[in-house]
Deep mutational scan, measured.
Amino acid sequence: KELVLVLYDYQEKSPREVTVKKGDILTLLNSTNKDWWKVEVDDSQGFIPAAYLKKL
């Protein structure tokens, strides 16, 4: 599985998104959309702007 590093805090703005903190390491589930990547946070899944993430 691929991991990503969160570069900036992000507060979810819709139920399909997730809240993350700078420095979090998350599992990347889908990066086919260049603007929004799907990640797994704890036991939930959701989208975060790709610009907030860096592949490890």
Rank of each mutant, 00 (worst) to 15 (best):
D35Y: 15
N30E: 14
S44G: 13
E40M: 13
G23M: 03
Q45C: 13
W37C: 03
D43N: 14
N33R: 09
T19L: 05
L53P: 00
G46H: 15
V20T: 04
V4E: 00
V6A: 06
S44P: 01
V20S: 02
A50H: 03
D24G: 05
R16H: 12
K54H: 10
L7Q: 03
P15T: 09
K55W: 07
V41T: 15
S14V: 06
K21F: 10
D35N: 14
L29H: 03
D42N: 14
L3S: 06
Y52F: 12
Y10H: 03
T32Q: 12
L3F: 14
K21A: 07
D24I: 06
P49E: 03
E17G: 15
W37P: 00
G23D: 05
F47L: 07
F47Y: 14
V18R: 06
D43F: 10
L26F: 04
W36I: 05
T32S: 14
E12L: 15
A50M: 05
V41Y: 09
L5K: 05
I25L: 06
P49Q: 03
D43C: 13
I48F: 02
Q45H: 11
D24P: 01
K21T: 08
L28N: 00
D9M: 04
L7S: 02
W37I: 02
G23L: 02
V39W: 02
K34S: 11
V39Y: 01
K22L: 04
L29S: 03
Y10S: 01
I48D: 03
F47Q: 04
W36L: 05
W36S: 03
K22I: 04
E2T: 13
V20Q: 01
P15H: 10
N33W: 07
L3G: 02
D42P: 07
K38Y: 15
Q45M: 10
D43M: 11
E12D: 07
K21V: 07
A51D: 08
L53M: 05
V4G: 03
L5D: 00
P49C: 07
G23R: 02
F47R: 03
D42F: 12
T19S: 14
K55D: 03
V4W: 05
L28V: 05
V18P: 02
D24Q: 15
E2R: 13
L28K: 00
G23F: 04
E12R: 15
E17P: 09
K22T: 06
K1R: 14
D43Y: 09
L56P: 00
K54C: 15
A51G: 10
L3P: 03
P49R: 06
R16K: 11
Y52Q: 03
V20L: 05
E2W: 12
N30P: 03
D9Q: 04
K55N: 05
V41D: 05
I48M: 13
K55S: 06
L56A: 03
E40H: 06
K34Q: 11
V20G: 03
Y52L: 10
E17K: 10
D42G: 15
P49A: 04
K38T: 08
S44E: 12
E2V: 14
E2K: 10
K21M: 08
D9V: 03
T32P: 04
D24F: 08
E2M: 13
T27E: 06
E40P: 01
W36H: 03
K21W: 09
K34I: 09
V20C: 07
D24E: 11
L53S: 02
A50V: 06
N33C: 11
P15Q: 09
W36V: 05
Q45L: 07
R16Q: 11
Y52N: 07
L56Y: 08
D43A: 11
W37F: 04
P15R: 09
V20I: 05
W37M: 02
L7W: 03
K38W: 13
N33K: 06
L3C: 13
Q45G: 06
T19A: 06
D9G: 05
T27G: 05
E40F: 06
V18H: 04
E40Y: 06
K38S: 08
V18I: 14
V39S: 01
Y8R: 14
D24K: 07
I25G: 00
L7M: 08
E12F: 15
Q11W: 13
P49H: 04
Y8P: 00
L53V: 12
E2D: 11
G23S: 03
K55F: 08
V41A: 10
G23V: 02
Y8Q: 13
T19F: 07
K1V: 12
R16A: 11
V20M: 03
G46L: 15
D35L: 14
K1L: 12
R16I: 11
S31I: 05
L29T: 04
R16T: 10
L29D: 00
E17N: 10
V20Y: 08
K22E: 06
W37Y: 04
D24S: 11
K21L: 06
R16P: 06
V6Y: 02
L3I: 07
S31Y: 07
P15E: 11
D35S: 12
Y52W: 07
V18F: 15
D24T: 12
Q11H: 13
A50F: 03
E12C: 15
P15G: 11
W36Y: 09
V41F: 12
V18M: 14
T19P: 02
A50P: 07
N33H: 11
F47M: 08
K34E: 10
T32A: 11
L28T: 02
K54W: 10
V4I: 04
P15L: 08
A51Y: 12
D9P: 05
K55V: 11
R16V: 10
K13Y: 08
K54E: 10
D24C: 07
N30K: 06
P15V: 08
V41I: 13
Y8G: 06
S14R: 09
K22M: 07
V18N: 03
V20R: 01
E12Q: 15
K1T: 10
T19E: 04
L26N: 00
I25D: 00
K54P: 01
D43R: 10
K21E: 04
Y52M: 08
F47W: 15
Y8H: 13
S14N: 12
L56H: 04
G46T: 13
D42Y: 11
V20D: 00
E2F: 12
L53E: 00
N33E: 09
D35F: 15
E40G: 09
K1I: 12
F47A: 03
V4R: 01
K54R: 13
I48E: 01
V41R: 11
K34R: 12
K55G: 03
R16W: 15
S14I: 06
L29P: 00
E17H: 09
T27I: 15
P49F: 06
S14H: 11
D42M: 12
Y52V: 12
E40V: 10
V6T: 03
I25V: 11
L56D: 02
F47E: 04
A51M: 12
A51W: 13
Y10T: 01
L26M: 04
D42A: 14
V6W: 02
S31H: 09
A50N: 03
I25F: 04
Q11A: 12
V4N: 00
Q45Y: 14
T32G: 08
W37H: 02
K1Q: 11
T19Y: 07
N30A: 09
K1G: 09
I25N: 01
T19K: 08
K22Y: 04
L5Y: 09
P15C: 10
W37R: 01
V39N: 00
L56T: 04
L28D: 00
N30F: 06
S44K: 15
T19M: 07
L28M: 03
K34Y: 07
D42C: 13
L3N: 05
K55Q: 07
K34W: 07
S31M: 08
I48G: 02
E40N: 05
L5R: 07
L5E: 09
L29E: 01
V6M: 02
Y8E: 12
F47P: 03
L26A: 07
K54S: 09
E2P: 11
W37D: 00
L7I: 08
D9Y: 04
V18E: 01
L5W: 06
S14T: 11
E12G: 15
D43L: 09
L29C: 06
W36G: 02
W37S: 01
T27K: 13
E2Y: 11
